[in-house]
């Protein structure tokens, strides 16, 4: 992410000469000292809470994860750690479930992210018109965002039920046989993706809408003079105009997708949730981590999966940066 850190102009207030001049005296000197201490120290005190909490609850655990991953640790005896070197890693590398979960994470990620962002783009375009009741449409689009994973997944699981679900009933009106959404791999992944899409499309649409409203109107006018149709204007003015926001949402959705957990867990109901279906057909890396740690009670192996997830994120970011750079060079 290219985030600018432009700072305010140089004569920043912190360097302003201390104010109290004139009469001397002990009290004065002490307060000057205090003042100086305040100016020097306060900034650090202000930013300290963030770094302390981050170090204690994010950074340290991340590092410690790698240490745990080199051990055999069981949930019921957390203080007994047995050194196993890289065994957990080689076992993970040889484990079909890992590659399967990795692939599922990627396919569900694509299935949920691509339609979600495309639909968000369309929705934002519609919301960008001069509208009656625009607040209603915006709030309506954002409502799913208020629904927790738990509630959303419960509802969708029921809509996708094989024997009496609403979706199969609707399909049956068109002569489609009942689909076994849970047992069929692609059906299950589609159903899970639809939960993600439902929850996040409106949110992303609002981000796009905000960016669209920042596009100067004269660009459209210029394009119109050049004879561009509305569709061409959309492609040539709107989309490039919100490019950075699009990149931003892709990054966020990707982070979300690599950690997908609640939706498939609840969709599977009971034991099938943790394993992501009887055939692991929708087990994601997040679920695999949970299965290893909190069903098989092997914390070392769970930590190994966590590291694999972290590596995946890094790879994704590197790829994204490379693609971005190549694209920028071409443009």
């Amino acid at each position: 992410m290219a985030i600018s850190t432009s700072t305010p102009s140089d004569g920043a207030p912190g360097t302003a000469p201390s104010a109290g001049t004139g009469t001397g005296g002990d009290g004065q000197r002490r307060s000057t000292l205090l003042h100086r201490l305040d100016v020097r120290g306060a900034p650090y005190a202000f930013v300290a809470p963030f770094f302390v909490v981050f170090a204690a609850f994010s950074f340290y655990p991340l590092i410690y994860t790698s240490w745990i991953s080199l051990h055999r640790v069981e949930l019921s005896t957390l203080n007994l750690m047995e050194w196993v070197g890289f065994d957990n890693y080689t076992a993970l590398w040889d484990d079909d479930r890992f590659w399967n979960a990795l692939l599922n994470t990627i396919t569900i990620g694509v299935l949920s992210t691509v339609p979600q962002l495309l639909m968000a783009l369309g929705l934002a375009h519609l919301l960008n018109y001069r509208l009656r009741g625009s607040t209603f449409f915006r709030v309506a689009a954002l409502t799913p965002y208020a629904t927790s994973v738990g509630a959303a997944a419960l509802v969708f699981t029921m809509l996708f039920e094989r024997d009496f679900g609403m979706i199969n009933w609707m399909l049956s009106l068109f002569g489609v046989e009942n689909i076994d959404w849970e047992n069929n791999k692609w059906a299950a992944q589609t159903a899970i993706s639809s939960i993600v899409i439902w929850r996040w499309t409106g949110y992303n649409a609002l981000l796009y809408l905000a960016a669209m409203q920042a596009i100067p109107r004269d660009r459209y006018e210029a394009a119109a003079i050049d004879g561009a149709s509305r569709w061409q204007q959309f492609l040539m003015v709107t989309v490039p105009g919100i490019r950075s926001t699009i990149v931003f949402t892709i990054v966020l959705s990707t982070i979300g997708a690599t950690q997908l957990f609640g939706e498939p867990l609840i969709f599977g109901q009971g034991p099938n949730g943790i394993t992501g279906g009887a055939d692991n057909q929708y087990q994601t890396l997040g679920l695999l981590l949970y299965e290893e740690g909190w069903k098989n009670y092997q914390m070392g192996r769970a930590a190994t999966v966590a590291w694999a997830m972290f590596l995946l994120l890094i790879v994704v970011f590197v790829v994204q940066r490379v693609v971005q750079r190549v694209a920028a060079r071409k443009a």
Partner: peptide, 23 residues
Amino acid sequence: LLMLVIGTMLVPPQLGVVPLFMM
């Protein structure tokens, strides 16, 4: 420090669940 703050955005806290749980 500001760059560090931004950098931390890339570290999803979920990755530390195992030690966090043990902690």
